Computed example of a mutant assay.
Amino acid sequence: MERLCGLRRGTDEAPRKKLLEAAWRLFDPPDWAGRAALGFEPEDFGDERFEVWPDNWQALTVFSAMRSQWRAGMGGFYGLDLNVLPEMWLRLKVPEADRDEVFESLLQMEGSALAFMHKKKAGP
């Protein structure tokens, strides 16, 4: 089974909510080192893996590959540099027929990630 940063590819279909949560989890993985420092073991927290539905996997793979392609200004990150997408399509072998759907999903995940980053920046 394919794995990506603590996420695993699921087997059923679900609404886009799962896709957005997957993007969020890429930016907020469990703090295993911090938990271990307090004497906890991974088993103490149960199974925290998050399934990604098969129809979202390709988009999540593209989003993860673009993790170093954020545009930033004085106020912080404001979006992905979409100029690199043609190269991503080629390197990740995204079929041309799937690109519109992957692009739409990428924009949704970008929004979810930005919401997370801005929330984290604002503090509790």
Score class of each variant (00 low, 15 high):
Phe103Thr: 08
Arg25Leu: 13
Gln69Gly: 06
Lys120Trp: 14
Val94Arg: 13
Arg35Thr: 01
Ala122Leu: 12
Glu21Met: 15
Trp32Phe: 03
Glu87Tyr: 15
Phe27Trp: 12
Met74Val: 09
Gln108Phe: 01
Val84Ala: 14
Val52Trp: 09
His118Gln: 12
Leu106Gly: 03
Met117Val: 07
Phe40Asp: 02
Lys18Val: 15
Glu43His: 01
Asp12Ser: 12
Arg71Thr: 03
Trp57Cys: 00
Gly6Asn: 00
Leu82Gly: 06
Leu106Met: 02
Glu101Asp: 07
Val62His: 00
Leu7Gly: 09
Phe103Val: 13
Pro42Phe: 00
Ser105Pro: 04
Leu80Tyr: 13
Met74Leu: 15
Lys119Val: 01
Phe45Gln: 07
Leu85Val: 11
Ala113Thr: 03
Gly6Met: 09
Gln108Cys: 08
Lys119Trp: 10
Val84Lys: 03
Asp28Leu: 15
Thr11Ser: 11
Leu80Ile: 05
Glu87Cys: 13
Val94Asp: 04
Val84Asn: 08
Ala23Met: 07
Lys119Arg: 14
Met74Asn: 10
Lys93Asp: 10
Asp98Phe: 06
Leu4Ile: 01
Pro95Tyr: 04
Val94Phe: 10
Gly111Val: 03
Phe116Asn: 13
Glu2His: 02
Arg71Met: 14
Cys5Met: 11
Ser105Ile: 06
Glu2Leu: 12
Lys120Cys: 13
Leu107Gly: 01
Glu2Tyr: 06
Asp47Asn: 14
Asp100Tyr: 07
Asp81Tyr: 15
Glu21Ile: 14
Lys18Cys: 13
Phe103Lys: 02
Glu41Trp: 01
Arg71Lys: 14
Gly10Met: 08
Val84Gly: 01
Asp81Trp: 13
Asp55Ala: 14
Arg3Tyr: 10
Val94His: 03
Arg25Ala: 05
Pro86Ile: 05
Arg71Gln: 06
Gln108Lys: 09
Ala122Pro: 06
Ser112His: 14
Thr61Val: 15
Gln58Asn: 09
Glu13Tyr: 07
Gly34Lys: 05
Arg67Met: 01
Glu104His: 05
Pro29Ala: 10
Val52Ile: 12
Ser112Val: 08
Asp98Tyr: 11
Pro15Asn: 04
Leu90Arg: 11
Pro95His: 04
Glu21Phe: 05
Gly123Thr: 01
Ala22Gly: 11
Ala33Lys: 07
Met109Phe: 11
Ser64Cys: 04
Lys121Tyr: 03
Ala36Tyr: 06
Gly46Val: 01
Ser112Met: 11
Ala113Trp: 07
Trp57Gln: 02
Thr11Ala: 14
Ala72Tyr: 11
Phe63Asn: 07
Phe50Lys: 00
Met117Pro: 00
Asp44Gly: 08
Arg9Gln: 13
Leu7Val: 13
Asn56Lys: 09
Asp81Val: 04
Ala113Met: 00
Met66Ile: 03
Val62Glu: 07
Thr11His: 10
Glu101Ile: 13
Gly73Ser: 08
Phe77Asn: 09
His118Ala: 04
Val52Arg: 05
Gly6Pro: 06
Leu60Val: 10
Tyr78Ile: 02
Ala59Ser: 11
Thr11Leu: 15
Glu21Asn: 13
Pro42Cys: 00
Pro54Leu: 04
Val84Cys: 02
Arg3Asn: 05
Leu38Asn: 01
Glu96Ala: 14
Ser68Arg: 15
Asp98Ala: 05
Ala65Phe: 05
Gln69Asp: 10
Arg67Lys: 12
Phe63Leu: 09
Ala59Asn: 09
Arg71Tyr: 02
Met117Phe: 07
Asn83Asp: 12
Arg3Pro: 02
Asp47Glu: 08
Phe116Thr: 03
